[in-house]
């Protein structure tokens, strides 16, 4: 498949005027992310409490763990009780649940979705396959360690983790946020070059800006 859609080209506008377009520059903002200061003292504590009690999960089933997300949100386990809700767009979500193994092709989309989320953002990784590759440790197409590509707050082990384990994991995440340790977005911004280097090492056809908001 050609990559002409990201190359510089001239487009005729509806009025008939030619316009120079450089998609990677014009359509995206590719300034590197900046680490954000947190507010001080009690305000930050209050904010962290609100963040921990209102976890909006991005609806992106990246792997087979997604099948246990439905029992999680339905009568038996009902994660809504704990302030966990679905959000279909990355702009509004604050928790990214990586549900299982990531192939390289998915990782590219995951990185993009992750970067579109707003600071502070948290990552929960399910399954052994995100920790060390799990069942697919020798596969040529799945990554082995997620924390090389994005900061991970909580790992939930298992293949696949039961909904109870997910609830426990979310509980752990709440503790981490409340203690002010959920600074994944800042960590990503501070070690941006390292993360980008790792991502670029395995994503061979890099056809997106380095950072897209």
């Amino acid at each position: 498949m050609g990559k002409e859609y990201i190359e510089k080209r001239t487009v005729i506008s509806p009025e008939g005027n030619p316009i120079e377009v450089d998609p990677l520059k014009d359509y995206f903002c590719d300034a590197a992310p900046k680490s954000c200061k947190s507010a001080s003292g009690i305000i930050e504590k209050f904010a962290n409490w609100a963040r921990s009690e209102s976890l909006w999960v991005l609806g992106f089933g990246t792997g087979c763990g997604a099948i246990e997300m439905r029992p999680l949100m339905t009568p038996r386990f009902d994660a809504y009780r704990f302030g966990i809700q679905w959000r279909p767009t990355p702009r509004q979500a604050s928790v990214f649940v990586i549900s299982g193994y990531l192939s390289v092709k998915t990782l590219k989309r995951v990185v993009r979705s992750y970067e579109q989320m707003q600071n502070p953002k948290f990552v929960v990784a399910l399954g052994s396959c995100t920790i060390n590759g799990g069942m697919y440790w020798d596969s040529y197409n799945t990554i082995n360690r997620l924390d090389h590509y994005m900061p991970v707050d909580v790992y939930i082990a298992g293949c696949m983790p039961r909904p109870e384990a997910l609830l426990a994991g979310f509980d752990k995440l709440k503790h981490i946020i409340r203690e002010g340790r959920g600074e994944g977005a800042n960590k990503y911004a501070e070690n941006f070059d390292w993360y980008k280097g790792n991502q670029k090492k395995i994503i061979k056809d890099w056809d997106m800006p380095d950072y897209n908001w």
Binding site: A50, R51, E53, S54, Y80, Q85, Q118, W213
Partner: peptide
């Protein structure tokens, strides 16, 4: 109706606070 407990009735307040405390905005 779906046999769930559902969100806490004060959850909309927390969501509101959380949305206002995001650090970045584009």
């Amino acid at each position: 109706v779906g046999r769930r407990h559902g969100i806490r009735f004060y959850q909309p307040y927390i969501d509101l606070i959380k949305n206002y405390t995001f650090r970045t905005r584009i």
